[in-house]
Design a protein around this nucleic acid. Sequence first.
DNA 1: ACAATTTTTGGAAGCGCTTCCACGCCACAT
DNA 2: ATGTGGCGTGGAAGCGCTTCCAAAAATTGT
Lengths: 342, 342
Amino acid sequence: MSAKPTIYDVAEEAGVGIGTVSRVLNNSTNVSERSRLRVQQAIRKLGFKPSSAARKLSRQTRIHNLGVITQSFNSYYSFAERLRGVQAFLSEQDEKYELILYNASSRDNAAEQLKAIIRDAAVEGLMIIDIDLSAEEQKALRQANIPYIGVNNSTASLSPNIGADNHEGARLATQYLIDNGHRHIAYIGDFFVDERFGFTTSHERYNGYRTALETNGFAHNEDFVKLGEHGYDAAHQSTLELIALPHRPTAIFAMSDTQALGCMAALRQCGLDVPADVSVMGYDDLEISKHTGLTTVRQHLELSGRRGAAYLLHTLKRTTSDVNLTLPQPVVIPRQTTRDIG
Amino acid sequence: MSAKPTIYDVAEEAGVGIGTVSRVLNNSTNVSERSRLRVQQAIRKLGFKPSSAARKLSRQTRIHNLGVITQSFNSYYSFAERLRGVQAFLSEQDEKYELILYNASSRDNAAEQLKAIIRDAAVEGLMIIDIDLSAEEQKALRQANIPYIGVNNSTASLSPNIGADNHEGARLATQYLIDNGHRHIAYIGDFFVDERFGFTTSHERYNGYRTALETNGFAHNEDFVKLGEHGYDAAHQSTLELIALPHRPTAIFAMSDTQALGCMAALRQCGLDVPADVSVMGYDDLEISKHTGLTTVRQHLELSGRRGAAYLLHTLKRTTSDVNLTLPQPVVIPRQTTRDIG
DNA sequence: ACAATTTTTGGAAGCGCTTCCACGCCACAT
DNA sequence: ATGTGGCGTGGAAGCGCTTCCAAAAATTGT
């Protein structure tokens, strides 16, 4: 008798009909105090819990739920900013939307979760942050009739996609450093993994960096490119390696603000001043970057969340009106960690 | 005919039985290629979407879902760290849990959302971050048989609660400054609002600050207490006011790292060095604080998320084993923004 | 006392799906 | 021809709830 109790069990236990139980559950009027008490007692005794599925089904009330799946809770500050955009947009809507968060621990796990989502029809729309879906996965979503939108994925592989132009942003960042007289610019980024399905963010930004160098006719120095795990610590380590170089760079372009912070910490730890000795450029413009005076590239994180959510809702409502899928161009925000050495 | 199509509509359109439609939906075997195609066509034509509620109900598969409700997406970095703890814990479990995020825009909105959650039995367990529930609200949750856990709420009012000892943390922080020779210590915090249901975090930390001062027999200076909105900007403003004082403090204790950053920015902007001229102490130990060298109080944010999730799961499983609800004591993490002026 | 309301009640029907059973059909062996 | 097995198929039953309706009980008025 450990099976989940239903209202029938409760009704029997309380010696009333199921209608009465339901009425108590819903705080409906027209229930005698005596019945209400008996039912409540039975509920407690049986540890009864209404099934939300059954409720949603019978009560015709369609509660919409959107999913957000990401692999990048490690770079969770930027994820949080995007999420904030999503929430903000959703809360402005008339209808209520539940936001279900899926956090994949690895690419394989992401695939697994995705399958589960499709199998259970768990969400009506899905936002995919920082995961590049294979063609098959995207097809599966389409077949399941689940609209989806990629955010910060490799534009090439995931469509539709809220595109941050990583290449252009990185090019601008590098060009900014060049305009400030820098000739020896290092790049700190993540490993270029997962290239099966298009470029990674790191690779895209790296390409933008290379483009800027080449456009200006500068030689490319392989020693100035340091790839590692994402995050503060790896960037810290990479920076130490850069400093140890016979000819150290005069500027370092980190592919994320978090990494830029790790970079700056390493520089200062070695007695180097930022920006007097070395300029540092980040990427993301997290809110903290404003606070730390980091020169960086603004890429409209919160807005990307908003736009993504807007797209999903429009699609769900079958609105034909177009939704703007492009974000404003990334732009360099000059602050105090870069210096003109021209 | 704009009503949501069901499998019956699809079956009719495709000229097959509902069983076949269901089989196609579930990628079941034993469906002729011909039928499969017809069904898929019909699905597309009708824009059919399976109802997740009906699915969950019929398929006996109980998918658990937990809710997290918060009001504090404004201080979302610390929220993100907690959430990370929750996710990490959940992903270690065998059973699958869906995490539904509720973000209240105001206290009233929180009350509204809470009602909706209860009404819809939307979640099996609820984590309440930074919102103090009234006795009635807690009672409603209990009646609805939804286990809940407060995180960083005023211990007094929300029970059970994963308690961060704000008073003690603030006392330690202040004592640390005192031990470093400071006698003129300012406090920057949030307004003490919402006291109907217990103390706010800001108030608790303020009290800890006062306790330290009094224990050491120092006079309390009302001018040194600046309360405002939460966040960087208000703290920035408060700091400017502190600096303008005839006798400015030698140390500033901000109730959060975010505010400490605003404070430091203001100091530097006025040509004051941290920590040479003024020491700054934060609270939270966000990950960024390590990066910015901020002396602060560590309060185990991620762990609080983990513990909260653990409690909910244990309760759901009716495990009798006790769950540890107490967090390690907060501890001062000395870094580079404070100086011994003894 | 009785009739006229009003409140309270039980339970059938139905929400949209999955699952299962029974049946038709065809290919193959006998 | 007759049997045998397996695939494909339709549709009834059932998941746990809400909602409705008609009927029973309680209340009011006369």
